[in-house]
């Protein structure tokens, strides 16, 4: 199971938009995909138009040890969602009194690992918070989502340093990639930012760049994924390309895992809230 944490301590860089549409594109390729909303602002949850029943969200997993499968919901976009709610914010405080609070997510995902090919973690804009530390500990890859706008480079370098500090705590290497978003090809400034990012991060920067596309803003605001709004939008092509690229990276990483350890992509999305019985079984 691939677990990719989408993170940046800078706000508004496109983490949530990317998380939703990458999950959708992977599901479109037949991957069994779970999106975990780790932000107390619950933007991914709202962005999928999911109304959270109070007390049934990822907050319950962190605060009340509710098994993850009990909070998972299906979405219209073909992937599953572990929704969030404001209450998740309480965990930062609770964590101070807990033993190994940054290991909770990894444990919870372990319980559903046979059921998914991909897990996408949408992190809050706090790289040093306990929720992001949970994500990084659980992740097989951290994807630094960087807007090709002002202060992008400084933000990316700071985030990278923060992640590297956590790597030292973890005691294992932290696979890191960088994705540039909100790129405007017609804007000389935006092109300069992209060139600057590539100059510093070429070794970890993905080939795919997500262009700025109005349809994405509408999509997240309406709770309807972009392909449903406009299948011919640039953004849809960009996320298709992103899904292909990350799948390629994952395949490389998986190639040294014994054959048969990964389940084939035969996922049937469902349209109802999940109970124990309807969580798809691995085939």
């Amino acid at each position: 199971m691939q677990i990719w944490a989408l993170a940046n301590q800078k706000g508004g860089t496109g983490k949530t938009t990317t998380a939703i549409h990458l999950a959708g594109a992977l599901a479109g390729h037949g991957k069994r995909c779970l999106l975990v909303d780790l932000d107390p602002q619950a933007h991914a949850t709202l962005g999928m138009g999911v109304a959270v029943e109070e007390g049934v969200s990822i907050a319950s997993t962190f605060l009340d040890s509710t098994p993850l499968r009990r909070v998972i919901r299906t979405t219209r976009a073909g992937f599953h969602l572990a929704p969030s709610e404001v209450r998740l914010g309480e965990f930062e405080e609770v964590a101070e009194r807990s033993l190994l609070p940054e290991g909770i997510l990894a444990g919870a995902l372990g319980e559903v690992s046979a059921r998914y090919d991909w897990v996408i973690l949408d992190c809050p804009p706090r790289a040093d918070g306990v929720l992001t530390r949970n994500a990084i500990r659980a992740a097989t890859m951290t994807l630094l989502v960087v807007e090709t706008g002002a202060f992008a480079l400084q933000g990316a370098l700071r985030a990278r340093r923060l992640f590297e500090e956590q790597t030292r705590e973890l005691g294992r290497p932290l696979p890191l990639r960088l994705l540039a978003t909100m790129f405007e090809r017609d804007s000389p400034m935006s092109r300069e930012f992209l060139i600057a990012l590539q100059a510093r991060f070429r070794g970890i920067m993905l080939d795919t760049v997500i262009r700025r596309d109005e349809v994405l803003r509408r999509a997240v605001a309406c709770g309807i994924p972009a392909p449903n709004l406009d299948p011919n939008a640039d953004a849809v092509d960009d996320f298709e390309a992103l899904a292909e690229e990350v799948a390629g990276i994952a395949q490389e990483a998986d190639s040294w895992i014994p054959r048969g350890a990964c389940s084939p992509p035969t996922f049937q999305p469902e349209v109802h809230p999940l109970s124990d019985d309807v969580v798809p079984e691995p085939r």
Partner: peptide
């Protein structure tokens, strides 16, 4: 056309306020 230091260092002078 590859092989720069990917770790950072001096920043190009592009990232100013928009």
């Amino acid at each position: 056309l590859d092989g720069a230091d990917p770790s950072g260092g001096d920043l190009p002078t592009v990232a100013t306020g928009l």
